[in-house]
Design a protein around this nucleic acid. Structure first.
Length: 875
RNA sequence: GGAGGCAUAGCUCAGCUGGUUCAGAGCAUCUGCCUUACAAGCAGAGGGUCCGCGGUUCGAAUCCGUGUGCCUCCA
């Protein structure tokens, strides 16, 4: 078989994904094995794969594939959420292009279009996840607007309403004038903005020509002012008690009120109060029973109540009114000012605080168990620093605004009679029944249903429950088996939107947590540290990257750079590292394949390959232990690094060189077989990270009875310390001798001779041959004395003399040894100091103490060796 | 204004419950190599007052306080 020069991912990835999927490796049905379940954080149905998804889903896939190798029955549930605002916006745009105005459509007509759009374009992202290699169970795709799911959401609404947790009321909400809907606090982003602070004077209602000056960044709201507020202790305004003033331009007479809410130092110390358009003003208004004048229409233009500029946009009016205030003599001055402006997460429109009738969910009762679960470690957060954030939010939880003025979503199951009484029920028929019960004399058979739909998160908080059919049967077999799920993997940016609410829903509706632990990935930023976003266009095209480099390398590049919970600066250089790595493995395969043709079962092991095999196996075992611990702490990036180094450094750089037969020599059959075993073990460790490449090579190595994806990991054994130590000694000697060769300008072809003064006979019997080959030495002799005219050095406690044609600089050698000796003596003193310190000996843990004693011994031995060598050189 | 986080090699970051086999990785830099897989490679090397200052301790990159500088979230 001819192998290509470099690894070529394109040809093989598609093949393996289909193969695995067809074999049913991704599918799960409950059985006697323990379950390992992950529910995907449902991507937005309008979404396309971006960097954040790549990281997030790679992590999930790694966890799942590893769990599969550990004997778990793994189940990863795919799906999407309906993303009411984003999807509705897409559909409205699509209709606009067709020349259709949403307002001309009935609700049902619109929804028909919306479902058509969803069927045609929605969920592309799920196909893209296949390209990434995600081992999702495609028999279990869910969508938050599926019939069954829809019913579950409605049921939850009704139940919470009946418990008194859901109510309808007028409050200040975040209004998106573009999407024409309310948003929850979590859907508003705060952006630093350069604004103008405008100073305006209001005429006092008195005989004298007096004014009071306020400062505002929103002069257009002046028309909605219903009071001026100052601090009770502010002497500047004490004389204005009980007084009134006039709103400029419209001359509304408004009171001057006093409240210690005011910051005397800000602006002029006088605040204009606009209860309809600011949350703090609203609260003030409530307290002082102020009139509320709503001067804005839903689309952000001024309403009739404003009296002026009716129908004009708020931002146009902001400029216009300043000119008019100048004309009227109320304008004082304007200065630059930086403030935080809220914008809609979805549409980017500037949010308008607005008084509005909405549906609310009281979270307080649900928050308590959810907070405790995380604080008590019932649910673990990785990294745990996010517990603080969670506690802070849960401890100050506010009522959740769950209604949205949209059509795409679960329509709120509330019906109104003519008088406006509310009947909440799962169906209209039930609502009518309720109505009749309360109004026995009325024979109305029609009620008006609430127009609003529910917040998308009000459906996704049921995700871990409903994907297993909770609503149909809360005690069904699937739910029993898969719930609580194992690990939720998500970004910290939706800790409130989603994670916290899922925890609440889990306890509220099932009485059980939804997952054992939450792993928060970092947020991916570009090289300059900016968040990747569509607006900035700084997110690389994932599908193109996969096309160019292959999924394994994309996975590698995002994982190698992403410690748990820390933000990562993504640099395409990581792709090069990944590509180089896959080539390295590919070339190791090529090397081994070259041996396949010249196997010899009778060949004696004069290469001393057994030494290499024992060492490599010990290293793999050691690395397995290490990796196991790292996975337990969700340090996946570290685990990948350990695997990377095990393969590149230990296997390719050391092991393969050690067992490599001489040019054109046959390869010992047994050594060859064991090398394949070792290679397979390494491929298995790497498989969760780079599934395609490893599966491909696994099958190229030799005929396999099964597939790597389902191969089970062995139990980790006790470490073979002797093999590890001997291997390390051999490496150190090789490196030291090569360094000496380099420093003395010996060419690789220049042959040297080695003389070694050591008590370690067994080591040289088992590895001396390897040592010779690795440093190009024609002979290795034991000696008990210094060899004249050689380069001398000490490795651990081995005295090494290198004989070559190079001229020997005794001076330099002596200096180097003396320097080393000096360092070791200093080192020994510090160790001795510790050991002679009573407090240390009394307080330190036994292992620490033992370690110090060992350090002392080693240092002493090495010092002795160095001193001997030095004194020999004197002679 | 409130809360949280971060500061370690030129760059991007690891360093868990304090203990010189622990100051490390990748990239970048330097030197030498077309050596029987791999120049996208091989063999080596150099490089850090672990942000400043105090404290706790036998011992601090690690714990505490404080200052400075960045970042995120919330109002």
């Amino acid at each position: 078989m001819e192998l290509s020069k470099n690894y070529e991912p394109q040809a093989i990835e598609q093949k393996w994904y289909e193969y695995w999927n067809n074999k049913g490796y991704f599918n799960s049905v409950p059985d006697e094995r323990p379950a390992y379940t992950i529910v995907i954080p449902p991507p937005n149905v309008t979404g396309v794969l971006h960097m954040g998804h790549a990281l997030n889903n790679t992590v999930q896939d790694i966890l799942l594939r590893r769990a599969k190798m550990q004997g778990f029955n793994t189940c990863w549930v795919p799906g999407t959420d309906h993303a009411s605002i984003a999807t509705e916006a897409k559909v409205v745009n699509m209709l606009k292009e067709k020349g259709i105005d949403k307002n001309d459509l009935s609700r049902d007509e619109f929804l028909k279009y919306a479902y058509e759009w969803k069927d045609k374009y929605g969920g592309i992202i799920l196909q893209q996840l296949k390209k990434l290699g995600c081992s999702l169970d495609w028999n279990r795709v869910n969508f938050t607007m599926d019939d069954a799911y829809y019913k579950a959401v409605i049921r939850v609404f009704v139940e919470l309403y009946n418990k008194g947790n859901i109510y309808r009321g007028v409050k200040m909400i975040n209004w998106d004038p573009q999407a024409l809907t309310a948003l929850s606090d979590e859907e508003v982003l705060h952006k630093e903005t350069n604004s103008k602070l405008t100073y305006v004077q209001y005429k006092i209602d008195s005989e004298k020509e007096e004014y009071i000056t306020i400062a505002t960044v929103r002069p257009e709201t002046i028309l909605g002012d219903t009071a001026i507020c100052v601090h009770p202790d502010d002497e500047r305004y004490a004389h204005l008690k009980e007084k009134f003033c006039f709103v400029p331009l419209i001359n509304r007479r408004i009171p001057i009120i006093f409240d210690d809410y005011i910051d005397m130092a800000f602006g002029t110390g006088a605040l204009k109060v606009t209860p309809a358009h600011d949350i703090n003003d609203y609260n003030l208004g409530q307290k002082h029973q102020l009139e509320v004048v709503d001067t804005l229409n839903p689309n952000g233009t001024l309403s009739e109540a404003a009296q002026l500029y009716i129908g004009e946009d708020r931002f146009t009016v902001r400029k216009k009114i300043v000119e008019d205030l100048k004309a009227s003599g109320n304008f004082v001055k304007q200065e630059d000012y930086t403030n935080q402006v809220g914008v809609s997460e979805r549409t980017g429109a500037v949010i308008e605080p607005r008084l509005s009738m909405q549906w609310w969910c009281d979270m307080e009762n649900m928050a308590k168990p959810a907070l405790d679960a995380v604080m008590d470690g019932e649910i673990d957060f990785y990294p745990s620093k996010f517990k603080n954030l969670y506690r802070h939010w849960m401890g100050n939880i506010k009522d959740w605004c769950i209604s949205r003025q949209l059509w795409w979503g679960q329509r709120i199951p509330a019906w109104y009679d003519k008088k406006g009484n509310i009947y909440v029920a799962e169906t209209e028929a039930e609502a009518i029944e309720k109505y009749k019960l309360q109004n026995p004399n009325s024979n109305i058979d029609e009620l008006r249903q609430e127009e609003d739909v529910l917040d998308t998160w009000f459906s996704s908080w049921l995700w871990p429950l409903q994907v297993f059919g909770w609503n149909e049967d809360a005690d069904n077999k699937e739910l029993d088996y898969y719930y609580p799920t194992q690990t939720l993997v998500t970004g910290p940016d939706i800790i409130f939107f989603w994670v916290a609410r899922m925890v609440m829903a889990g306890y509220e509706f099932k009485g059980k947590k939804p997952f054992e632990q939450v792993y928060f990935t970092g947020i991916i930023r570009d090289k300059q540290g900016r968040k990747m976003s569509k607006q900035l266009g700084n997110s690389p095209d994932l599908l193109q990257l996969i096309e160019d480099y292959g999924a394994d390398i994309v996975r590698f590049s995002v994982m190698i750079s992403s410690p748990a919970g820390s933000d990562i600066l993504y640099d395409e250089a990581f792709l090069d590292q990944g590509r180089n790595f896959s080539n390295k493995i590919w070339n190791a395969l090529k090397l081994i394949k070259m041996w396949e043709g010249r196997l010899d079962a009778d060949k004696t092991d004069d290469n001393q390959s057994q030494f290499a095999i024992d060492w490599m196996q010990a290293r793999i075992n050691e690395a397995r232990q290490h990796i196991e611990g790292l996975f337990a702490d969700f340090k996946l990036s570290e685990a990948l690094k350990v695997t990377y180094s095990l393969i590149w450094d230990d296997f390719c750089s050391w092991y393969l060189e050690w067992v490599k037969p001489a040019l054109n020599e046959p390869m010992n059959q047994k050594v060859y077989e064991q090398t394949l075993d070792i290679f397979e073990d390494l491929l298995q460790l790497l498989n969760p990270f780079m599934p395609f490449l490893t599966e491909e090579i696994f099958h190229l190595l030799r005929e396999q009875a099964s597939d790597l994806i389902v191969r089970q990991l062995p139990e980790v054994k006790a470490n073979n310390d002797t093999a590890l130590q001997h291997g390390q000694l051999l490496q150190q000697m090789i490196t030291a001798i090569r360094d000496a060769r380099n420093k003395n300008q010996l060419k690789p072809k220049d042959v040297i001779s080695l003389f070694i003064d050591s008590d370690n006979d067994t080591f040289y019997k088992s590895a001396g041959n390897i040592l010779q080959r690795q440093v190009n030495a024609d002979k290795l002799e034991q000696t008990k004395e210094a060899v004249a005219g050689t380069m001398a050095m000490v490795v651990q406690t081995e005295k090494v003399y290198i004989q070559s044609h190079a001229e020997v600089n005794v001076e330099a050698q002596r200096d180097k040894m003396a320097e080393e000796l000096k360092y070791l003596q200093g080192f020994l003193i510090s160790v001795d100091k510790k050991l002679s310190n009573e407090k240390f000996v009394a307080n330190a843990k036994p292992e620490v103490l033992a370690n110090e004693r060992k350090k002392q011994e080693d240092a002493l031995a090495k010092i002795k060796t160095l001193e001997e060598s030095l004194s020999l050189m004197e002679n």
